Simulated scan of single mutants.
Amino acid sequence: MKKDIKDAAGKTAAYTKEQLDQIRQEAANKLTAMDKDIDALQAKAGPMSDQAKAQAQKALDDLKAKRAAAAAKLDALKAAGQDAGQELKAGYDAAMDNLAKAYEAAKKGLEQ
Rank of each mutant, 00 (worst) to 15 (best):
A69F: 03
G85S: 06
D93C: 02
E104S: 11
A102W: 01
A95Y: 06
K89T: 09
L74E: 00
L60W: 03
Q86D: 13
L110I: 09
Q51S: 14
G81E: 13
A95L: 02
K11Q: 13
L60T: 02
A79P: 00
E87G: 11
D61A: 08
E26M: 11
M48N: 07
A68G: 12
A28C: 03
K17H: 07
A59R: 09
Q25S: 15
A95D: 11
K64S: 10
K17Q: 12
D97H: 04
D61M: 03
M1W: 10
G81R: 07
N29I: 11
N29L: 14
T12W: 10
L63W: 02
S49R: 03
N29A: 14
M96L: 13
K58V: 11
L20F: 03
K3P: 00
A70D: 09
I23L: 11
T16H: 09
A69T: 11
I5H: 07
Y15H: 13
A59W: 04
Y103S: 03
G46A: 12
Q51F: 07
L60C: 05
Q86K: 11
A40H: 06
K66D: 04
K78T: 05
K53I: 01
A33I: 10
L110T: 03
A14V: 13
D83A: 15
K11G: 14
D93R: 10
L63M: 11
K53E: 10
